[in-house]
């Protein structure tokens, strides 16, 4: 079974900005509702494969996206 990583954001503005940037870099991501066991300030998270999470996280931060947290769900 694949294990996913969830990147969360303080606002939906940053969530969609993150999506737009990640898609332009051809990262395999999907915007999903934040699982309820994760604490987040905005209800939409970016889901990606665990092995790509750190790379995506760094890429987003380099592009001034404010990130709330990074969670792995196995």
């Amino acid at each position: 079974m694949k294990s996913y990583c969830y990147i969360t954001f303080p606002t939906t503005y940053y969530a969609i900005r993150a999506e737009s940037l990640a898609k332009s870099e051809k990262f395999s991501i999907k915007m999903v509702p934040v699982p309820r066991n994760i604490s987040s300030s905005c209800g939409t998270a970016m889901r990606c494969l665990e092995e790509e999470a750190e790379k995506i996280n760094n890429f987003l931060q380099d592009n001034k996206v404010v990130i709330d947290g990074l969670y792995v769900q196995r």
């Binding site: 939906t12 969609i16 915007m31 509702p33 209800g43 939409t44």
Partner: peptide
């Protein structure tokens, strides 16, 4: 409704608002 859910209707609305900004 943009920013209120993560289904396609809400996300597409949010994408439109994001592009407008």
């Amino acid at each position: 409704n943009p920013g209120r859910a993560s289904h396609a209707g809400s996300l597409n609305a949010l994408r439109m608002i994001f592009e407008l900004r």
